[in-house]
Protein backbone atom coordinates (compact mmCIF):
# COMPACT_ATOMS: atom_id res chain seq x y z
CA UNK A 1 0.00 0.00 0.00
CA UNK A 2 1.33 3.41 -0.95
CA UNK A 3 1.93 5.63 2.03
CA UNK A 4 2.19 8.76 -0.08
CA UNK A 5 0.83 9.33 -3.55
CA UNK A 6 1.49 12.44 -5.59
CA UNK A 7 -0.05 13.27 -8.96
CA UNK A 8 0.97 16.28 -10.99
CA UNK A 9 0.27 17.79 -14.40
CA UNK A 10 3.12 17.10 -16.83
CA UNK A 11 4.95 20.41 -16.36
CA UNK A 12 8.71 20.63 -15.72
CA UNK A 13 8.21 22.96 -12.77
CA UNK A 14 6.53 20.15 -10.77
CA UNK A 15 9.43 17.72 -11.07
CA UNK A 16 11.27 19.58 -8.32
CA UNK A 17 8.24 19.20 -6.04
CA UNK A 18 8.23 15.44 -6.72
CA UNK A 19 11.94 15.24 -5.84
CA UNK A 20 11.44 17.15 -2.59
CA UNK A 21 8.49 14.98 -1.53
CA UNK A 22 10.29 11.78 -2.58
CA UNK A 23 13.34 12.62 -0.50
CA UNK A 24 11.27 13.74 2.50
CA UNK A 25 9.36 10.43 2.51
CA UNK A 26 12.62 8.48 2.00
CA UNK A 27 14.18 10.17 5.01
CA UNK A 28 11.14 9.41 7.13
CA UNK A 29 11.08 5.80 5.86
CA UNK A 30 14.63 5.29 7.13
CA UNK A 31 16.65 5.35 3.90
CA UNK A 32 20.30 5.94 4.80
CA UNK A 33 21.37 9.59 4.64
CA UNK A 34 24.16 8.82 2.15
CA UNK A 35 21.62 7.39 -0.32
CA UNK A 36 19.36 10.45 -0.34
CA UNK A 37 21.23 12.25 -3.13
CA UNK A 38 20.78 9.19 -5.30
CA UNK A 39 17.09 8.94 -4.38
CA UNK A 40 16.64 12.61 -5.30
CA UNK A 41 18.36 12.18 -8.65
CA UNK A 42 16.60 8.93 -9.57
CA UNK A 43 13.10 10.24 -8.74
CA UNK A 44 13.92 13.39 -10.69
CA UNK A 45 15.06 11.39 -13.72
CA UNK A 46 12.02 9.12 -13.67
CA UNK A 47 9.65 12.13 -13.39
CA UNK A 48 11.53 14.07 -16.07
CA UNK A 49 11.19 11.08 -18.38
CA UNK A 50 7.44 10.87 -17.69
CA UNK A 51 6.88 14.62 -18.17
CA UNK A 52 8.91 14.62 -21.39
CA UNK A 53 6.90 11.70 -22.79
CA UNK A 54 3.55 13.26 -21.90
CA UNK A 55 4.58 16.52 -23.57
CA UNK A 56 5.93 14.68 -26.59
CA UNK A 57 2.59 12.94 -27.07
CA UNK A 58 0.49 15.98 -26.13
CA UNK A 59 -0.98 14.20 -23.09
CA UNK A 60 -2.45 16.24 -20.27
CA UNK A 61 -2.90 13.18 -17.99
CA UNK A 62 -1.31 13.46 -14.57
CA UNK A 63 1.99 11.78 -13.81
CA UNK A 64 1.76 9.73 -10.63
CA UNK A 65 4.45 9.05 -8.03
CA UNK A 66 3.70 6.40 -5.40
CA UNK A 67 5.96 6.06 -2.40
CA UNK A 68 5.69 3.09 -0.09
CA UNK A 69 7.81 2.09 2.90
CA UNK A 70 6.49 -1.35 3.84
CA UNK A 71 9.74 -3.39 3.92
CA UNK A 72 11.90 -1.16 1.80
CA UNK A 73 11.42 2.25 0.22
CA UNK A 74 9.66 1.74 -3.11
CA UNK A 75 8.95 4.58 -5.53
CA UNK A 76 6.88 4.06 -8.67
CA UNK A 77 6.64 6.75 -11.31
CA UNK A 78 3.76 6.11 -13.69
CA UNK A 79 3.22 7.71 -17.08
CA UNK A 80 0.48 7.19 -19.68
CA UNK A 81 2.46 7.52 -22.89
CA UNK A 82 2.27 4.79 -25.56
CA UNK A 83 4.40 1.85 -24.50
CA UNK A 84 6.62 1.95 -27.60
CA UNK A 85 8.02 5.22 -26.26
CA UNK A 86 9.91 3.18 -23.67
CA UNK A 87 11.68 1.11 -26.26
CA UNK A 88 15.19 2.23 -27.02
CA UNK A 89 16.19 3.01 -23.46
CA UNK A 90 19.84 2.13 -23.58
CA UNK A 91 23.08 3.40 -22.19
CA UNK A 92 25.04 5.30 -24.83
CA UNK A 93 28.73 4.54 -25.32
CA UNK A 94 31.07 7.51 -24.63
CA UNK A 95 32.09 7.97 -28.27
CA UNK A 96 28.46 8.52 -29.25
CA UNK A 97 27.65 11.00 -26.47
CA UNK A 98 29.06 14.05 -28.24
CA UNK A 99 28.30 12.74 -31.72
CA UNK A 100 26.97 15.48 -33.98
CA UNK A 101 24.16 13.30 -35.31
CA UNK A 102 22.73 12.53 -31.86
CA UNK A 103 19.75 14.78 -31.12
CA UNK A 104 19.48 16.57 -27.79
CA UNK A 105 16.38 14.55 -26.89
CA UNK A 106 18.09 11.23 -27.65
CA UNK A 107 21.12 12.29 -25.66
CA UNK A 108 19.06 13.37 -22.65
CA UNK A 109 17.02 10.16 -22.75
CA UNK A 110 20.15 8.00 -22.96
CA UNK A 111 21.91 9.91 -20.20
CA UNK A 112 18.78 9.86 -18.04
CA UNK A 113 18.53 6.12 -18.33
CA UNK A 114 22.24 5.72 -17.57
CA UNK A 115 21.69 7.71 -14.36
CA UNK A 116 18.65 5.64 -13.34
CA UNK A 117 20.47 2.38 -14.00
CA UNK A 118 23.62 3.67 -12.32
CA UNK A 119 21.96 4.95 -9.15
CA UNK A 120 19.24 2.37 -8.57
CA UNK A 121 20.30 -1.21 -7.88
CA UNK A 122 16.72 -2.44 -7.91
CA UNK A 123 15.09 -0.89 -11.00
CA UNK A 124 12.18 -2.19 -13.07
CA UNK A 125 10.60 -0.61 -16.11
CA UNK A 126 7.32 -2.30 -17.04
CA UNK A 127 4.00 -1.61 -18.77
CA UNK A 128 1.17 -0.43 -16.50
CA UNK A 129 -1.65 -2.93 -15.94
CA UNK A 130 -4.47 -0.84 -17.44
CA UNK A 131 -4.18 1.21 -20.63
CA UNK A 132 -1.06 2.70 -22.16
CA UNK A 133 1.84 3.70 -19.97
CA UNK A 134 4.96 2.65 -18.16
CA UNK A 135 5.84 2.22 -14.51
CA UNK A 136 9.40 2.92 -13.43
CA UNK A 137 9.80 1.16 -10.10
CA UNK A 138 12.77 1.85 -7.85
CA UNK A 139 13.54 0.21 -4.53
CA UNK A 140 16.00 1.26 -1.81
CA UNK A 141 16.80 -0.47 1.49
CA UNK A 142 15.64 1.09 4.76
CA UNK A 143 17.18 0.97 8.20
CA UNK A 144 14.53 0.64 10.88
CA UNK A 145 15.08 2.90 13.84
Amino acid sequence: MATVRLSFSPAPVHVRTARLVGVAVARRAGVAEELLDEVRLAIGEACTRAVTLHRQYGLTDLVTVEMSDSDSYTVSVIDHAPIEASVGLAKLPPDELADESLTDDALTTGVGFALLAGFVDDLQVRPVDDGPGTEVRMVWPVTRR
Binding site: E100, D104, T108, G112, L115
Partner: peptide, 15 residues
Protein backbone atom coordinates in the same frame (compact mmCIF):
# COMPACT_ATOMS: atom_id res chain seq x y z
CA UNK B 1 21.56 19.40 -8.33
CA UNK B 2 22.25 18.42 -11.94
CA UNK B 3 20.14 16.03 -14.00
CA UNK B 4 20.20 14.57 -17.52
CA UNK B 5 18.57 17.67 -19.01
CA UNK B 6 21.40 19.82 -17.62
CA UNK B 7 23.99 17.35 -18.89
CA UNK B 8 22.34 17.52 -22.34
CA UNK B 9 22.67 21.32 -22.31
CA UNK B 10 26.38 21.07 -21.46
CA UNK B 11 26.95 18.59 -24.31
CA UNK B 12 25.10 20.97 -26.65
CA UNK B 13 27.46 23.79 -25.64
CA UNK B 14 30.49 21.56 -26.20
CA UNK B 15 29.28 20.74 -29.72
Amino acid sequence: FLDSTGLGVLVGALK
